[in-house]
Write a protein that binds this DNA or RNA. Structure first.
Ligand SMILES: [Mn+2]
Ligand SMILES: [Mn+2]
Ligand SMILES: [Zn+2]
Ligand SMILES: [Zn+2]
Lengths: 143, 143
DNA sequence: ATGCAAATGAGAATGATTATCGTTCGTGTC
DNA sequence: GACACGAACGATAATCATTCTCATTTGCAT
């Protein structure tokens, strides 16, 4: 449906296959920024592509390991992925409509570093999710 | 094995049954502060009690809803519970040995409130997990 | 065009959690 | 203390997300 970019895959050490190109394209040119495996699978389905769900899971994990995507574990049991654009950020999620907003707070980040240091921990990763309701009037996002 | 406390259950609107008393006792008098359903199940098993795994899951969820326990979703796919002692705190988890330390940082808490307010969100809940390695020398906690 | 390892897709398998359902237990009544 | 009855239990089937297996297809280098 769009131009494909085999360079990104090759440079990530991944051979350029059709399913991989389709998934990457979805994240780069699709409307949803945060998507689960099932989301990706359905969108590819809807656009007439015949990809297996197992392949979607496989590719998402590979992309994560290759640093192309970032995985998040919001509440609800399913992993959500987004394009890795290098800039770390955390998320605030609306429990009514599922809308996700991103934020970065340097004060929080530095406090985390201090907390870990004080306790003799080497930080590997961290996750901060705020759950709430976005103002009812603007809530009409999608389910 | 210890004194049982049916009051807590009754006051929580829960009928005082043997499995419930055992589970509650584990959290109040056991050695582990943070436990998964499987952890609880095994510990009860080991102490000779015949409780069903389904009952453990049921009771943990009931206790959570009754406000007796708090549920956390650390990485690893399984829910972890701890006694609800009223004071909110976040967690830093060692990815090597599984050791968990708790912390509360008012600066982080207030920044979160501000972030939500700025975006028109009413906070329902939030989760902050820091993952890392605790200093190798003190790491010999359990797997 | 050929060859072959790597990737894919269908479906089975897994691990955590929940739902079902016949049996047992807790508690209030006589 | 015996009874009654609905709540709770325990064993097991079912569900859900995700991973694994394996026969078939594909990407890519000869
Ligand atoms: Mn994001
Ligand atoms: Mn805790
Ligand atoms: Zn909303
Ligand atoms: Zn450790």
């Amino acid at each position: 449906m769009n131009e494909l970019e085999p360079e990104h895959l090759k440079s990530a050490g991944l051979k350029s296959t059709l399913p991989r190109l389709k998934v990457l394209d979805l994240f780069k040119n699709g409307q949803e920024r945060h998507m689960s495996a099932e989301n990706v699978y359905q969108l590819l389905r809807d656009s007439g592509d015949n990809v297996g769900l197992a392949t979607v899971y496989r590719v998402l994990t590979q992309f994560e390991q290759a640093g192309l995507l970032v995985r998040h574990n919001f509440e609800g049991g399913k992993s959500v992925f987004e394009l890795n654009e290098g800039t770390h950020h955390d998320h605030i999620v609306c429990m009514q409509c599922g809308h996700v907003e991103e934020f970065y707070d340097s004060a929080i980040e530095s406090r985390q570093k201090k907390i870990a240091a004080d306790r003799g921990f080497t930080i590997h990763d961290h996750s901060l999710h705020i759950y709430g309701d976005c103002t009812k009037t603007k809530c009409p996002h999608r389910r």
